[in-house]
């Protein structure tokens, strides 16, 4: 049993550590954000996990287009849905943080609008899938679309915010690089938090794939 579980326990341990350490370590005292700087350990890993899940989905989609194995199509679509779950949590937590530091739930920030566009692109992936009945055609069309939406994600979350004239997000346009500025003590909590949530993402993905395969098994017989 431990053979299948060790990585899940590792992920849980990393998150438990990040919550305890994240709430108790000394953090730099900055105006306006005050204690909310600790949200770095809880809000940001959700986005990293979303990015990794969408990346996983891209890999499965390319694999599907190469070998046309239905299993890869299931994995690609379930990765997208897992990523959407983390993206949605990232949006909600980000809105609460923004309201209490920037003054509004939604600001006209390139990073925020980029996140909204990319999430909409992935919601469209599900709409596209739902609109095609024929299984092989649905798999192929959505795999091609998935490659396109990953491009959108990279452009809207990775490139455009950095090119923008000004962004409220650290490390983005007009702001210094967040990662270079990050307090060394905070790095020791931030990296395990990111790793832990990515692992939990893969755990959720694994459960989703198993559930979907059961459903498909029931549908065909």
């Amino acid at each position: 049993m431990l053979r299948n579980w060790w990585w899940k326990l590792l992920g849980l341990l990393a998150i438990i550590y990040s919550i305890i350490a994240g709430l108790t370590i000394q953090v730099p005292k900055l105006p306006v954000i005050y204690q909310t700087i600790r949200n770095l350990f809880f809000h940001v890993p959700l986005w990293f996990t979303m990015f990794v899940m969408f990346g996983t989905s891209l890999v499965y989609s390319i694999k599907y287009l190469n070998k046309l194995k239905p299993g890869d199509d299931v994995a690609a679509s379930q990765s997208v849905n897992t990523g959407l779950f983390f993206g949605l949590l990232g949006l909600l937590t980000g809105m609460i943080w923004a309201k209490n530091t920037w003054g509004d739930y939604w600001t006209n920030d390139p990073q925020l609008n980029g996140a909204a566009v990319s999430i909409l692109a992935y919601l469209a992936y599900n709409v596209l899938r739902a609109s095609i009945d024929e299984r092989a055609l649905r798999a192929r069309v959505s795999a091609v679309y998935n490659i396109f939406s990953f491009m959108l994600l990279v452009i809207f979350l990775g490139v455009l915010p950095r090119l923008a004239d000004s962004s409220l997000h650290p490390g983005k346009g007009g702001n210094s690089s967040a990662m270079a500025d990050l307090d060394p003590a905070m790095r020791l909590v931030f990296y395990p938090a990111v790793a832990g949530w990515i692992i939990i993402g893969f755990w959720i993905l694994e459960i989703r794939k198993r559930k979907r395969k059961l459903e498909m098994f029931l549908e065909q017989s």
């Binding site: 204690q35 909310t36 809880f42 943080w97 530091t101």
Partner: peptide
């Protein structure tokens, strides 16, 4: 503003 951190953790847990 510590309550913001608590709120964010609560949202993640609720999700």
């Amino acid at each position: 503003k510590f309550f913001v951190v608590a709120l964010v953790l609560a949202i993640i847990f609720a999700g």
